[in-house]
Design a binder for these strands. Sequence first.
DNA 1: GCATAAGTATAGCTATTGCTATAACTGCGC
DNA 2: GCGCAGTTATAGCAATAGCTATACTTATGC
Lengths: 152, 152
Amino acid sequence: MREPPSSAPEGSLIDPEVHVESFRQAREARRLELVEDYVELIADLIGDGGEARQVDIAARLGVAQPTVAKMLKRLAEDGLVQQRPYRGVFLTAAGEALAAQSRERHRIVERFLCAVGVSPETARRDAEGIEHHVSAETLDAFRRFADGHSDA
Amino acid sequence: MREPPSSAPEGSLIDPEVHVESFRQAREARRLELVEDYVELIADLIGDGGEARQVDIAARLGVAQPTVAKMLKRLAEDGLVQQRPYRGVFLTAAGEALAAQSRERHRIVERFLCAVGVSPETARRDAEGIEHHVSAETLDAFRRFADGHSDA
DNA sequence: GCATAAGTATAGCTATTGCTATAACTGCGC
DNA sequence: GCGCAGTTATAGCAATAGCTATACTTATGC
């Protein structure tokens, strides 16, 4: 009692393959969000005070210290950070690279939001979530726009 | 060997409370993402073909059918959908409301991305992830911008 | 140098979201 | 009305990300 949807979609539904790909991309981004947040924050903490302690990371992220410890173990397995027991945590070359990239993207998104009229506080908070879902092409458009409207 | 960070932040670090709040908001958004995606998709499927079957939802989302079944049970517990065993799934009034809101937000974000010069395909894919992290204020800015540049 | 405070590690729990495999049910053809 | 194909339900597993409680290590003060 269902006609094959081969030719004419009768509603607002888009191509299933595109749909799947969009969701797949969103899931993938969600998986990487936390990793990027951690690496970005560790880079900031090291840049600010010379070291990144678990308690500081936990306080910044708003989570408990064991949660951070577990995550750092995973980041170490992924080769992004290096940790010495009971000592601080450092970024590997790969970690530095990812942090730099994340920070740059974050900065562009935040600046862009301000450029389109969002208040600085909201821009900062929304950028934290949006940055992970911005593709290279969109980031490029954001950068161009922000550059062109930096003082409007 | 660490001075108290009471007065002057010497690096690029923002106020810890703001930091925590940003991450908390991002985590909260992440928790709601899936729910909104499901409800939005169910509304689309019903609007398109009159019914939303688990296999169709699974095919669109790119996940397995049992994953959908489990999620629908949760949505039913949350009062967003109503399901009859071995029959289709329907949206409750609350589900309809959430779907309408999600769809509207999705539409605005996608339209906005196109307005700033992103290609339609990329706009569609990025919107799927971005929409969940856009606050009311930012959405308003997006809408204003898209309305003013609909044909530029 | 020893006690205490601060920071880190570990154990064990929960919830979420994905999977595969398989059982149960519906509806259709014949 | 029986069987088979399609659909849904259920069971059980894994990974992730959070938590509390507690043990361990380091560093500091005296």
